[in-house]
Amino acid sequence: MFRKFLLMLAGIVSIAFVVTLLSAGFGFRLLVSRRLDRLHRAITRAASGVERVRVEPSRGDDELGDIIQAYDALVAREERHEAELRGAHEKLDEQSRRDPLTGAFNRRHVQEHIHEVVDASGSALALFDIDHFKRINDRHGHGVGDEVLVEVVRRIGRVVRKQDLFARWGGEEFLLCVGEVGDGGLDRLARRLLACLDSEPVMTSAGPLVVTSSIGLVAFPLRTGAGAHAWADAVTVADWGLYRAKQSGRDCAVVVDVVDVQDAAAGGAAVESVPIGGGVLSVVPHVVRSVQASANPVLPA
């Protein structure tokens, strides 16, 4: 509609331009024709979709000045309208990437941004959930369960860095991808995450509740002798570690080291197998317990 209007206006200006040249004196024709020409070029470029520009500040109170003012006002209105549309689109896009309850990022955001966290010095991927969360909902109601979820996100949000990727993966399950963990970083990360949640009770409308978590961690990106695996394989391995943590008594983490079978057997390690999309991985898991560490940043700056 706006473009059709501009095309019609461009035609009118073209006719006015010709009439002016034919009927006016030379000096007046030159002054007016320049303004008409600028107006015509601006309208034509806007109508063709090249760009939308304003013409000039109005000079005098003549009819041509009124037309230029009206056109510039129309351009300004369309610019404001487009800015509002862009803002609304950006807001909707942000909302589509956030969990509406906790404000944490969601699975879609992870899928689009997880590769940004991968660093040459090594990263870590953790998958964890809240222990006995169903029991909290059954005993105290889903409203209290929601309060626990919100508090968990708040606590984790205090200790992760801006460049880390933290998201609600689904239900009471969360995913955290941390870059630059360094040597021994998986165990250190596990202890700090555990302490972040169980260091003090969660205050709810039903009273204070002790909240713990079970965590599975793996180095990321996942690499074997065959090369790098898809990030979804790393999630599968971390998920395996999470359920191993459940089997180990909860309130703990299982760090999963992907190994070469022969090297691990030679070292006396107990090698286990984890099914992934492309086959089976050989791993050596070990359990990490909470030590009530202080809530410093997950990793040094």
Rank of each mutant, 00 (worst) to 15 (best):
T212H: 03
A228I: 11
D131N: 09
A232S: 15
V150G: 03
A206S: 14
V254K: 05
A245E: 03
T212I: 08
D260S: 05
I215L: 09
D146K: 14
V256F: 02
A270D: 12
G184Y: 05
P201N: 12
F166W: 04
G179R: 10
S205E: 13
H140A: 03
R244L: 14
A219E: 12
V237R: 09
M203Y: 11
G267M: 07
D183Q: 14
R244D: 14
Q163K: 03
L209P: 10
A226E: 12
V235S: 02
D183M: 13
E200R: 14
S199M: 14
G182P: 12
T204P: 00
W231Q: 00
S123E: 00
L189Q: 01
V181I: 12
G207T: 03
G207P: 08
W169A: 01
R168L: 03
L193W: 13
G267R: 13
S213C: 15
A264Y: 09
H140T: 01
A245H: 09
G249K: 10
A230Y: 14
V261D: 14
G157N: 07
L186K: 08
G171E: 11
P208H: 12
V210H: 15
T236C: 12
H142Q: 10
G241P: 07
G249W: 10
A265V: 15
P201G: 07
G249Y: 09
L189G: 06
C177Q: 01
K134W: 02
V152Y: 13
L125R: 00
E172H: 08
S123N: 00
F174I: 08
V181M: 00
P208G: 08
W169V: 01
L209W: 07
H229Y: 10
Y243K: 12
H229L: 05
V255Q: 11
D257L: 08
A190M: 00
R244W: 10
A195S: 10
V255P: 12
G170Y: 04
R244S: 07
M203W: 15
T212R: 14
A219F: 04
H132N: 14
L175H: 04
F166R: 05
D233K: 07
Q247D: 15
V144C: 05
W231P: 08
T224L: 01
D187Y: 05
Q163A: 11
V202H: 13
D131E: 06
A226C: 13
R161Y: 06
G249P: 05
C252I: 10
D183H: 15
A124E: 02
L127N: 09
V210G: 08
R188E: 11
R158A: 15
R155V: 06
L189P: 01
V150E: 11
L242I: 04
A265C: 08
G216M: 06
R223A: 13
V237H: 04
E173I: 01
E173W: 11
A234E: 01
F174C: 10
V237T: 03
K246G: 00
H142G: 04
V148E: 07
R223N: 07
C196Y: 04
S123F: 01
V153D: 00
P201M: 05
D146C: 06
A269R: 14
T224M: 02
V255M: 10
A219T: 10
R192M: 03
R158V: 03
A219C: 08
R223Y: 02
F133R: 11
C177S: 08
V202Q: 12
M203K: 12
R161K: 07
F133G: 07
K162Y: 15
